[in-house]
Every structure is written in structure tokens, then in C-alpha cells.
């Protein structure tokens, strides 16, 4: 099977992007001090999180909605909920 990148794999999925609101918010300070920033970058299969100049960037549109980031986040470091009804990823296989 040919090698693929995350963006290539995600491009096969169907997303309905909520342009008005992000379902993810990070607390930059807590992400730094608790190690949450590094942990959420490590566990997210969609590459939603990245780090630039010590800040955590969030590409919420790529989210696969598994909640793994929330499972490793320190209390208060990450606000994560499901996108509004009808938005986000729509699996056609599942």
C-alpha cells in the first residue's frame, strides 16, 4: 500500500466544517506548565494540535471527534466538546 500523509488520509473523509465556532479551546499557560500540550500533540491521530513558538495551534476542522486529547489533558488545560449537531466528521464507512 502506498505511503500516505495525514492530510491525504483526511482528504478521503467527509467534513462539514462549522465556520462560526470551534469546539476546542486550549489554555496555553496550562498546556505549557502541565505537559498537556506535548501529550495532546502525541496522541491526536488527526494532527489537530501542533506547536509553534511555544504556542499550541488547533486545527479543529480536522478533528475526528474521538476525545483522546481530553483523556490525556490536565484539568482545565483543554476545553473539548463535540461539534454542534450536524457539523464535524461524517463517516461513510465507520
Amino acid at each position: 500500500m502506498k505511503t500516505t500523509t495525514v492530510p491525504e488520509r483526511l482528504a478521503a473523509n467527509r467534513f462539514e466544517i462549522d465556520e462560526d465556532e470551534s469546539h476546542i479551546e486550549v489554555d496555553q499557560e496550562l498546556c505549557r506548565t502541565t505537559g498537556t500540550g506535548k501529550a495532546i500533540i502525541a496522541v491526536c491521530p488527526a494532527g489537530v494540535y501542533s506547536e509553534q513558538d511555544g504556542e499550541i495551534l488547533v486545527d479543529y476542522a480536522a478533528c475526528l471527534e474521538c476525545g483522546t486529547c481530553l483523556a490525556v489533558a490536565a484539568p482545565g488545560a483543554l476545553k473539548w466538546r463535540y461539534p454542534r449537531g450536524g457539523f464535524g466528521v461524517s463517516f461513510r464507512e465507520g
Binding site: M1, A12, N13, P45, A46, L64, C66, A71, E93
Partner: peptide, 21 residues
């Protein structure tokens, strides 16, 4: 991409990518 699985996956095309906690 593991060589131990290559003979099962050869010429396969990824049509969806997902995750689950």
C-alpha cells in the same frame, strides 16, 4: 507500512481514516 503486512495490503487504497477512544 510494516513488511509483515505488505502482502495483505498491496495496492489497497485508503478510503477513510478515523479514530476512536
Amino acid at each position: 507500512q510494516h513488511p509483515g503486512l505488505a502482502h495483505y495490503l498491496r495496492d489497497g487504497e485508503i478510503v477513510e481514516y478515523g479514530s476512536h477512544l
